[in-house]
Amino acid sequence: MNDPVAYAVTAYALVAAAYAGWHLWREAPFSNGLFYVVSVLELLLIALLVGGSIALAGTERDVDGVLFISYLVTTLVIPPAAILWGVAEKSRWGSGVVVVAMLTVAVLVIRVLGIWQGAYV
């Protein structure tokens, strides 16, 4: 797993957080636009899990595989949860849920990169 990929996914999650934050600012509830943005993130995270698994199988480095994969799987759960919770809330805070979720994904992906590099134990 190379760094630019992880940083790109993190950047996308931050953009998604900003987009949700803009909704929050405008007092807008969860929108179709947010749904698509979050869905694309989910696809990116699935790709990250697949790519990460392949890279893990082929690497010589001392990576904590269980931790690495469990973090990647955890990130997958968050976007669908954000959509379910965001849609159910009709006020602006439906978007607030998405802000929280997207920032969480960004942090988790950075941690995944850290685990890959052996920085976190």
């Binding site: 954000a82 919770w85 809330e89 006020s91 805070w93 607030g96 929280v100």
Partner: peptide, 16 residues
């Protein structure tokens, strides 16, 4: 409800 929903989401993240 309302802001509480975002708060619950944040708590869920820390619970996890």
């Amino acid at each position: 409800s309302g802001f509480g929903r975002a708060l619950v989401a944040l708590y869920a993240v820390f619970a996890l």
